[in-house]
């Protein structure tokens, strides 16, 4: 009888684990969603036993899902907040694991017809906080500046607010759009438009050169200026995990940080971390 029970249990375990496909869920940053999809597709080609499900929604949404246990990996285009880390500590007794996966030059988008070529930190801050409302103050035509931005669940929104606006709030006149592609699209069609977002999305528009202050040199975001941080709005793109990765998750993270994974970073339009 005892032997039968042991055999049955063994059989059950074999059925339960035989051919089981490992599934990794990834959620968060819209800035990173294309990159994350490319990584997942490429990785699954070589590892058919692993399924990677990627969705966007914004960095805040991804980190909330990580805290609630609804995703394995949260993509984020901003560092995790202290309050989010506190929640991870409360639920999982863990500080979370931060993985820097790529670098991005947070780009300032301008319409092709816009004569302005470079902008300072202060000019960007003034435009987005509502202190500067006319292109003339930025060296452009005598016309109203139309500012486009992201929703507050976006990591790009938070990063721009914290590092460019110095923590000040966006002006109410900033038009909120769902996703960086929508911001690019709006600026491409609007001669008076200005937007911000990841460098990889900059298609059909021009990227402004950005300088720290009036006495500094302006830099455009490119491989060199982002790598050596001379482009003033350089940021990391992160993956956050609840605890130290093991098994399939560890293999996937290691692959992302390998030369193969980092090659995809360049192909998508971002910049490798090494």
């Amino acid at each position: 009888m005892k032997r039968t029970i042991i055999m049955l249990l063994g059989l059950l375990a074999m059925v339960a684990f035989a051919g089981e496909k490992e599934t990794i869920t990834v959620k968060g940053s819209d800035t990173m969603v294309i990159l994350a999809q490319r990584w997942a597709e490429k990785y699954m080609e070589a590892h058919p036993d692993v399924t990677i499900q990627v969705t966007g929604g914004g960095s805040g949404v991804g980190l909330s899902a990580l805290i609630n246990g609804a995703t394995d990996i949260a993509n984020s285009s901003r560092p995790i907040k202290g309050s989010e880390r506190e929640k991870l500590k409360q639920r999982f007794n863990s500080l979370g694991v931060e993985v820097k996966t790529a670098k991005d030059g947070l780009s300032v988008y301008l319409n092709d017809a816009c004569p302005v070529r470079e902008l300072s930190h202060a000019q960007l801050k003034g435009s987005y906080t509502g202190q500067i409302t006319n292109w003339k103050a930025l060296g452009g035509p005598d016309a109203k500046i139309i500012t486009y931005g992201r929703e507050n669940s976006s990591g790009t929104y938070v990063y721009f607010r914290d590092f460019v606006l110095g923590g000040q709030d966006f002006a109410a006149s900033v038009q909120t759009l769902p996703g960086t592609a929508a911001v690019v699209n709006a600026v491409a069609k609007d001669k008076l438009g200005i937007g911000y977002g990841g460098a990889a999305y900059a298609k059909g528009i021009r990227m402004a050169a950005v300088k720290k202050d009036n006495n500094s040199k302006a830099y455009e975001p490119n491989a060199q200026t982002v790598k050596d941080d001379t482009y003033p709005i350089t940021r990391y793109l992160y993956m956050y995990l609840r605890s130290r990765p093991t098994g399939a998750m560890k293999a996937y993270i290691d692959w992302i940080l390998s030369s193969e994974g980092q090659d995809l970073v360049t192909k998508v339009g971002y910049f490798p971390i090494k």
Binding site: K89, F92, N93, S94, L95, R242, S243, R244
Partner: peptide, 12 residues
């Protein structure tokens, strides 16, 4: 004190 034990999970 918080520490993430490898494989097992976080502890406090």
């Amino acid at each position: 004190l918080y520490y993430d034990l490898p494989i097992i999970g976080g502890m406090s």
